[in-house]
Amino acid sequence: MIGIRVEEQWGCLTTTPFFFALSVHLKLHECKGLRGMRRFPSIKDNCEFRQIYESGRTRADRNLVLYLCFRSGGDSRIGVSASKKIGNSVVRHRVTRVLREIFRLHRHAFTSPCDLIFVVRKDGAKQDYRTLEASFLKLCRAQGILEEARC
């Protein structure tokens, strides 16, 4: 069913058509608190990738290459680059999901906010979670951004 809503927006009265069913559906989701979810801190813009490639520090092992650039404020962010050379889209997305999960679990241990870009090598696409996590942590420790565990 279609209706007309009159509301004040920036000091002006506006009339907008809307669907009653859609309005009720959106109100239900607002009550459940789904609007409070935060976006995953990732690097998506090509210009940001290029800037970090050019000005960032680099470390590598047989599975991953890490490019690192420190930030002045905000949260740490991650970007993953997995080319078609390592496999089809299923393989590329699996590695991306695994790296993002490893980042999510360990980002509280970073000493300062930074942008991380991981380039997946061909051997890295064949590895399991534990091996990728070990590579991730080794590269972050080599860059000095991961605080050591306190025993």
Rank of each mutant, 00 (worst) to 15 (best):
N63G: 00
L146W: 08
T111S: 14
S83Q: 01
L105I: 13
F20I: 15
P41I: 05
G79F: 00
L146P: 07
F49Q: 00
E48L: 08
S135L: 04
D123G: 03
F110R: 12
Q9T: 02
A149Q: 08
R50P: 00
F103K: 14
A82S: 11
C31M: 12
L68Q: 05
L26I: 09
D123C: 02
C151H: 11
L146E: 05
A21Y: 05
S72N: 10
L68D: 07
K44Q: 08
R141K: 15
I52K: 02
T131R: 13
R5D: 07
G56L: 04
M1A: 12
S112F: 08
F118T: 00
W10A: 14
K122S: 07
C12Y: 13
I52R: 04
N63K: 02
V65S: 05
I86E: 00
R35E: 12
R100H: 10
G3E: 10
T16E: 12
P113N: 10
H106N: 15
L13M: 12
L64F: 05
E30N: 12
S89C: 08
S23H: 11
E147A: 14
I117P: 06
A21Q: 14
Y129P: 07
F118P: 00
A142M: 06
R35A: 12
R71A: 06
K138A: 14
A125C: 06
I117E: 02
A149S: 11
G73F: 04
V90C: 07
M37R: 15
K85I: 01
L99D: 08
L99W: 03
R59Y: 02
L132M: 00
L22E: 15
Y67Q: 10
R50A: 08
A109H: 14
H108L: 08
T58A: 09
S72Y: 06
R35H: 13
V91S: 10
I52N: 05
E148L: 12
F70I: 03
C47L: 12
E148Y: 08
L22T: 15
G73M: 01
W10S: 13
Q9R: 14
G73D: 11
D128H: 05
R38Q: 14
H29Q: 15
R59A: 09
Q143W: 04
R97M: 09
L68W: 04
N63T: 01
C12M: 13
I43N: 02
Y53Q: 05
R77E: 09
T131C: 09
H108P: 01
E133S: 08
R77W: 02
Q127P: 00
K32G: 03
I2M: 11
P113D: 06
T111V: 13
R121F: 03
S72C: 04
F110Y: 15
R104N: 02
T15V: 11
R150E: 01
N88C: 09
L139P: 02
F70W: 10
K84M: 09
L139Y: 00
L66Q: 06
A82P: 06
C114M: 03
F20T: 15
R59G: 01
R100Y: 04
L22V: 14
Q127N: 04
Y67C: 06
C151D: 05
T111G: 09
P113H: 08
L105F: 09
F19K: 14
R100A: 03
E148K: 15
Q143T: 05
L146A: 05
S112V: 08
E54C: 07
